[in-house]
Structures are given as structure tokens and as C-alpha cells.
């Protein structure tokens, strides 16, 4: 993930507290989505940015996951996402991010946030 984005996310996490934040990813490739999700949960796997070794444990979803889709009004969804649901592999992207979410919950134990 972009190094500047990592800094911004760290600042937001410190300012608002991790539990008020939700990260929504728009990556088209499951591997890239997974790395982004990993960065905001368990830390930057490339060890390049400030989130290296930082377990923020943020709540993270891919935009195409049902949890997000179900909360966006249809008209807005059609405008902003529309046919991209046909182009991108929503289930693979969703599973990649969900796996990171589950791993992070497992790793952070209880009462983390």
C-alpha cells in the first residue's frame, strides 16, 4: 500500500480510535485486496511503511462484499459500481478480504477494540 496512505490511516486510527473506522477496498485483484486488508489488520507485509509491525486490527471489507452492498442505496450502487460487479470476481475478492478479517480477529484476541 502507498506509504502516504499508511501514514494517514495510522493518524486516523490514533485520532478516532480503531473501532470507529471501516476500511473499504476497491482492488480488482484478490491478491492485492488481501495485501491491503493485511496491512490495515496485522501490519504492512512489505515492511515498507509505518504500518509495518503495527496491528491496527481495523474492520475491513471489499466494496463488493454483501455487508457493504446491502447498505448502499440501489441507485448509488448502479451509478458508482454498476457493471463492475460483472467484470470483477466479487466472491474471490470478498473471500480474500474476509480471510484477513478472520485472521486478524483470531490474532488480536478479545477486547482488543
Amino acid at each position: 500500500m502507498d506509504l502516504d496512505s499508511q501514514e494517514q490511516i495510522l493518524k486516523l486510527s490514533e485520532r478516532h480510535g480503531p473501532s470507529s473506522l471501516v476500511v473499504i477496498i476497491g482492488a480488482p485483484d484478490p491478491e492485492a485486496a488481501e495485501i491491503t486488508a493485511e496491512t490495515v489488520t496485522s501490519g504492512d507485509p512489505s515492511y515498507a511503511g509505518v504500518l509495518a509491525g503495527t496491528q491496527l486490527g481495523l474492520d475491513v471489507y471489499h466494496i463488493l462484499e454483501d455487508e457493504i452492498r446491502s447498505e448502499v442505496p440501489d441507485e448509488v450502487w448502479e451509478d458508482q459500481i454498476g457493471i463492475m460487479t460483472d467484470v470483477l470476481d466479487g466472491s474471490a475478492l470478498g473471500s480474500a478480504v474476509a480471510a484477513m478479517r478472520a485472521q486478524a480477529v483470531g490474532a488480536s484476541g478479545d477486547g482488543d477494540d
Binding site: 480488482p28 485483484d29 491478491e31 492485492a32 495485501i35 457493471i83 463492475m84 460483472d86 467484470v87 470483477l88
Partner: peptide, 20 residues
């Protein structure tokens, strides 16, 4: 590097618009 197939995604988007 996990950036996928850029032209293929462009063509799928275009084809989906053509179908619509």
C-alpha cells in the same frame, strides 16, 4: 505482482456496456 490483467478488465467492462 497482483495487478491482474489490465486489458482484459477493460475489454470485459466494454463488453458489459455493449451488452447493456
Amino acid at each position: 505482482q497482483g495487478s491482474g490483467n489490465v486489458p482484459e478488465r477493460n475489454y470485459k467492462t466494454l463488453a458489459a456496456l455493449a451488452a447493456r
